[in-house]
Amino acid sequence: MLSSHNERPYQIKRATEAGDTEPPILHSFPSRYYEGYVRELDHFCDVVQGLDDNMLSGENTLRVSIIASALEESVKTGQAVKVIY
């Protein structure tokens, strides 16, 4: 299993008998995953300039679309959706 957690303004978690508390997540998806966006943009610029090969294939893009569609269907129906590539 892989997991990625939302970035927060500071990385501290408080645990007491009453429960756990954490600071709220950063406002926007790009601010929570800033480093990933920067790396993606850097790679894109390198590909455009011919300095690197594109790491993504059309097949990878199609699979992401299939997964996103299955997730959307799952949210609409409240049921698990089997993903078939």
Rank of each mutant, 00 (worst) to 15 (best):
L62S: 11
I25P: 06
V48D: 02
L51R: 15
E40C: 11
G50M: 01
T61H: 05
S28C: 09
Q49T: 05
L26G: 02
L41A: 13
Q49L: 10
N60Y: 06
P23Y: 03
L51P: 00
E59A: 11
S57T: 15
H27P: 07
C45P: 00
N60G: 06
M55W: 03
F29V: 15
T61I: 15
G36K: 02
S28A: 06
Q49V: 06
L56A: 04
S31L: 09
Y34N: 14
P24W: 01
L62D: 14
C45K: 15
P23T: 02
E59Q: 10
G58N: 13
G58E: 09
D42I: 09
D42E: 15
S69I: 03
S31E: 15
N54Q: 02
H27W: 07
V47P: 00
P23R: 01
R32H: 05
M55R: 13
V48R: 02
S31D: 15
N54G: 02
S57P: 02
H27M: 09
Y37P: 00
T61G: 00
R39F: 11
V38I: 15
M55G: 01
Y34P: 00
M55H: 09
E22I: 12
M55D: 12
E73L: 09
L62W: 13
L56N: 07
H27R: 15
V48N: 00
I66T: 14
G50D: 03
R63L: 11
S69G: 08
D42P: 00
H43I: 05
E72F: 10
A70W: 04
G58R: 10
H27N: 13
I67C: 07
V48Y: 03
L62I: 13
I66E: 07
I67Q: 04
G58A: 11
Y37E: 11
E35Q: 10
V64P: 00
D52P: 00
P23H: 04
M55K: 11
Y34H: 14
T61Q: 06
Y33T: 14
N60M: 10
F44W: 07
P24G: 05
